[in-house]
Design a protein around this nucleic acid. Sequence first.
DNA 1: CAAGCGGGTTGACGTGGATCAAACGCCCCA
DNA 2: TGGGGCGTTTGATCCACGTCAACCCGCTTG
Lengths: 247, 247
Amino acid sequence: MQQRAVVPITVEGLKTACSQCNLQELCLPFGMSDGDIDQLDALVGGRRKVKRHQHLYRVGDAFESIYAVRTGSFKTDVLLEDGREQVTGFQMSGEILGLDGISTDAHTCNAVALEDSDVCIIPFANLETLSREVESLQHQFHKVMSREIVRDHGVMMLLGSMRAEERLAAFLINMSQRFTARGFSAAEFHLRMTREEIGSYLGLKLETVSRAFSRFQENGLIAVQQKHIRIRDIGGLKALLSHLPSV
Amino acid sequence: MQQRAVVPITVEGLKTACSQCNLQELCLPFGMSDGDIDQLDALVGGRRKVKRHQHLYRVGDAFESIYAVRTGSFKTDVLLEDGREQVTGFQMSGEILGLDGISTDAHTCNAVALEDSDVCIIPFANLETLSREVESLQHQFHKVMSREIVRDHGVMMLLGSMRAEERLAAFLINMSQRFTARGFSAAEFHLRMTREEIGSYLGLKLETVSRAFSRFQENGLIAVQQKHIRIRDIGGLKALLSHLPSV
DNA sequence: CAAGCGGGTTGACGTGGATCAAACGCCCCA
DNA sequence: TGGGGCGTTTGATCCACGTCAACCCGCTTG
């Protein structure tokens, strides 16, 4: 951890404002002109802090807003009646949560903070109203939803067609890319989720995840120490995907 | 096959028109007022026939339109470079295809007709323009996308957390519900896809699918004859889901 | 009418990942 | 500073599903 310069906190500084936000490039405003982005400032209904392990929303909650992660990270999951959990995604800063609620006006999954986090609240009625006026916002929002669908297809590919080590390699590459996009190291990062949560996401048991990590370490692909990951051979990981066991 | 009455074919009769379409309740216009639906007639850019095994679109094709299935059915899939296929969905009449393309302006999966089919072409630029004017259309479209995301979560649950027989039971129940919604029998229907395609969708090998069908038949849950399915005990199938092997 | 073929079923066997179990290490808190 | 608990690692064993292979059936084609 690094000491950071003390910055005076002012009301201005705390104001919710897409136009001032350094996550623009990762978030809903991505690709919009400065002028259009200024209009978004009116869109955000406020912020909300969510402590580690607290829910942002639960299955069945009335749907009113979507959320943009400002700091921290979340998981979304679905529960089967007998208690089995399926993690459907992990969300980092700039990513949008809550799209599942639009279809039935109620949330269909749970969103839980993996660490102390905070989010921008975007009342959905506002978003629809404004996106009828601001074409670029409309288009961006459609892209965000479509991207989620494409991501889900990738997960289906993972779950339906890959073996354990391929799944974990794909997961690590994906995490690395997302950390990179946020200005963090591509090679060294700290996972916020447990082995069990990774396993649930990847359709594996936690022991299998742990063993795959160990195997990667033995093969010099990564260095693991609990949640801390250092990627030593990204090419090797990618090779695991573009197929074939050891060719 | 049944002889059908000869109906005179006129230009009127062939005209694309949501307001005249009997799929309204299942398709994009669902929930919209008659007045609003009339405006959709301008939206549809035409129709397209797709023969069995032909592609409606392929990975990489430029994205310009989404499609509503009028007759027939489709599968969508994603291919891994080593040839592994993951079927990401099966689409029936009234369902929307092509939403994956919005995110990158190019399609990210393949859509293939399972039988001779035809679709309405909905140019996406038109849809965005019109949905800036017609609030109910905008909202419906958002619901359609969200529903797709929720469906995908269900598939993740299937693939990540269920065993083979649970997956197939969920698949059969889902098909039954969708046939029912279309006015067909809930208990007796004809599958358009092969065992291999079902297996790919469910993350199983075709032999496993075949064996699970046979097991269901032995247990009096269904009667199978190739692609023809008759459900004899829908409660029994549902019981397989709400859990626990034989309790 | 025969031959070929794609799709489906069934059996025998192999294996990747699940399950069960034990021990370890980090971290929180008294 | 020491104890307790959660998360993780690792080993031994099991089993659900994959793999390989034979065969069947209904359709198409010459």
